[in-house]
Simulated assay, not measured.
Amino acid sequence: MITGIVLFFFGQGPIKGFATTLIIGIVISFLTAVFLTRMMLEWYANRKNAKEVSFTTKLTSSWLRNLNIDFLGKRKIAYSVSLFFIVIAIAGLAVRGLNLGIDFSGGRNYIVQFEKPTNTEDVRKPLNNTFGDASAQVISLGTNGDKVRISTKYRIDDNSQTVDDEITEQLYNGLKQFLGDNTLNEFVKENLVNTQKVGPTIADDIKVSSVWAVLISLLLVSIYIFIRFSDLGFSLGAMASLAHDLMWILGIYAILWGILPFSMEIDQSFIAAILTILGFSVNDTVVVFDRVRENQTLYPKRDKKQVINEALNETLSRTFSTSMSLFVVLIAIFGFGGDTLRGFIFALILGTILGVYSTLFVAVPVAYDLIERRNKKKAIAKNAKK
């Protein structure tokens, strides 16, 4: 909900619409889960011929139950793995950088559909001559090779009324060898699927607002965790987990853009995906923290490490069930949702996987280490006073 509200206030255009849909979905999901589902179960239970309702099958009745995995005992190994990949991510960001979309860099996007598969390098060469010093970037969309996205900053500062039509005509002339006998009008109607223009001033504003959106989301989530659990250790553990997920995803996008056969641009949709990921990840973390607090209340004399490990094992089934449900839906959208959605969905898929890992091996272990270090300092200070 927090990330949805931040997206609504900082997003623009379709991102604001996405945020609205996200908020409405969360509210409706809450109402149906808390009230409608309970009402239906009570109605069924009050029937004379009601039978016992089983929420598992023979196959899943023992799924991830009665486990005794020492998550905290493996935390140093997990820290090393996370640090290793974060270093790789930083190297990727430093060497290759991110592929900024025109939302952040300014420019024009043209999505062009050809009748036959074409090579992106063959398309790019004549366009570089057409657009002069402003080079053109050509990315293949989909797996058929007959659709490309052409990006350029050519005459982006030109605000004359005829500039868009002039550039479209230049684009047509540059691509004429791939269009057969199509005229300019036929090119616009049949081949030119979509056009987009973002000026440099607007791009800078969008970039700044997107950074603020991410930072404010992290801050609000941190405050929420602190208020809910009244412990700075839990709050910092959640923040470490979210920062970990963010670095991994940025690193993967820096390393793989231009290699995978779909767009991996950093644009407003990517920011929406990042904030959605952060919301999902912290939701999973809150569930585990809740169980930790509950177990600490039930067993105050037990060793804290044992209590936390039990909480992680007890919630593991729920964690994998919710994550797998989301993962299956995302895979379906990734496969059948169209080319323009794949970069957005790919970020969500990465976030779903990383969210599970970071909850188990980053958020809770970091919170445990911070709380233990604080308790040791208090014990040393108390002994010093004696």
Score class of each variant (00 low, 15 high):
273 A>S: 06
334 F>T: 02
373 R>P: 00
285 T>S: 02
35 F>H: 11
156 I>Q: 13
134 A>L: 08
363 A>K: 05
157 D>V: 04
65 R>F: 09
87 V>W: 13
219 L>M: 11
293 R>I: 07
24 I>C: 03
308 I>K: 09
129 N>T: 13
309 N>I: 11
75 R>C: 08
128 N>K: 03
197 K>G: 00
352 T>K: 04
221 V>G: 02
282 V>M: 03
329 V>F: 06
348 L>F: 03
182 N>M: 10
355 G>D: 01
178 F>I: 09
134 A>Y: 13
183 T>M: 02
343 G>P: 00
80 S>T: 14
141 L>F: 10
152 T>V: 07
304 K>W: 14
174 G>M: 08
342 R>W: 05
172 Y>H: 04
238 A>R: 01
340 T>K: 07
186 E>W: 02
43 W>I: 12
44 Y>G: 00
197 K>C: 00
17 G>Q: 09
23 I>N: 01
77 I>M: 13
70 D>G: 08
86 I>N: 05
333 I>M: 12
263 S>M: 09
38 R>T: 12
314 E>I: 09
140 S>Y: 02
367 A>W: 07
249 I>R: 04
290 D>P: 11
47 R>N: 11
26 I>F: 06
49 N>K: 12
221 V>C: 02
77 I>S: 10
147 K>F: 03
142 G>S: 09
23 I>M: 05
309 N>Y: 11
247 M>A: 14
78 A>E: 06
127 L>F: 06
53 V>I: 09
247 M>F: 14
254 A>C: 01
112 V>G: 04
338 G>V: 11
338 G>M: 11
191 N>T: 02
260 L>H: 03
116 K>L: 10
96 R>I: 00
13 G>I: 00
348 L>S: 02
205 D>I: 10
37 T>A: 13
116 K>C: 05
379 A>C: 00
169 E>Y: 12
214 V>A: 09
62 S>L: 15
15 I>E: 11
169 E>C: 01
299 Y>S: 14
286 V>T: 00
191 N>C: 04
321 S>C: 10
104 F>S: 06
322 T>V: 06
381 A>D: 08
269 S>A: 13
99 N>I: 05
266 I>V: 13
109 N>I: 12
356 V>T: 14
306 Q>Y: 13
268 Q>W: 09
140 S>V: 12
61 S>P: 08
274 I>T: 04
109 N>D: 15
94 A>H: 10
57 T>E: 06
20 T>H: 05
371 I>N: 10
47 R>A: 13
196 Q>N: 11
8 F>V: 00
296 Q>D: 13
337 G>C: 09
146 D>E: 07
49 N>D: 15
138 V>C: 07
58 K>R: 12
135 S>I: 12
44 Y>S: 04
276 T>C: 07
206 I>F: 15
332 A>I: 08
96 R>T: 01
145 G>S: 03
77 I>F: 14
286 V>A: 01
295 N>R: 15
353 I>R: 03
102 I>N: 09
358 S>C: 07
33 A>N: 09
304 K>L: 15
241 S>M: 09
11 G>T: 05
93 L>M: 05
227 I>R: 14
137 Q>E: 10
10 F>W: 03
131 F>A: 03
